[in-house]
Computed example of a mutant assay.
Amino acid sequence: MSEVIIKAEARDAFGKGAARKIRREHKVPVVLYGHGTDPRHLTLPGHELLLALRTPNVLIRLQGAVDELALPKGVQRDPIKGFLEHVDLLLVKRGEKVTVDIPVTVAGEVADGILDQQLVSVSVEAEATHIPTGVEVDVEGMEVGAHVNAGDLKLPKGTSLVTDPETLVLHVIAAPTAEAAEGEAAEGEAAEAAPAEAAEAAAE
């Protein structure tokens, strides 16, 4: 995993007003914690941090006010506009093992039926500077009834699974027949009609 270098500035102003001022300057308030140290309050450039966070479990090399390696552990975004409001970073060291969630992606096409993916990420333990970007499952040619559990995933060397190995990641299920689809539609219509009929009966 490559490192993303971002310049960090010390932050000594706190509260909502100070945070708004920081964001107006296109920066993001950040807290760096971990290893039993006191939390350190920093400010990072917003655009650079936003680009870095597009990579899951990105390793950030902070330079400037601090010279540390960190992983994002908490990201707060504006619910409407989506800009970064606040980020928590976890201090890590080279050689240290960390537990993170990595995405599960799918490659290929099933032979028949419908692919039902139950799990989009799994928890793994990996060396802080060698966290895999994700794990891929090849479903090419899978037929109805085939399934993949977490323990079946092929993780990179040096990475161990934390998620229960028996957890279902994905399986192939039979496509509904035309009759079954019509039956479900009829049930839905009946369910929608029931409240209206009950209201009419009560009114009489």
Rank of each mutant, 00 (worst) to 15 (best):
R54K: 13
D78H: 13
A52L: 09
T105D: 10
V104M: 12
L119H: 05
Q118C: 10
V98A: 06
T133H: 14
V139K: 10
A128R: 10
R94T: 14
L69E: 05
A70H: 08
K81N: 11
R77L: 00
I102V: 13
P103A: 12
V100Q: 03
G113C: 02
P79G: 07
H130E: 15
K97I: 10
L89R: 07
D101H: 15
H47A: 09
A126N: 09
E136L: 02
L69W: 01
Q117G: 02
V120T: 04
V58Y: 06
I60Q: 01
V124N: 08
F83Q: 06
I80E: 02
R94K: 15
T55C: 06
R61F: 02
N57K: 06
V75W: 03
P132C: 15
I60D: 00
L44E: 07
L59Y: 01
F83I: 03
E48A: 07
I131Y: 14
D88Q: 10
P132D: 14
L50H: 05
R61A: 01
V106R: 04
V124Y: 03
V139S: 12
L44C: 01
K73P: 08
T105E: 13
D116F: 06
E96M: 11
E68R: 12
K93S: 13
V137I: 15
D78T: 00
V87D: 06
G108A: 12
L51M: 07
E48R: 05
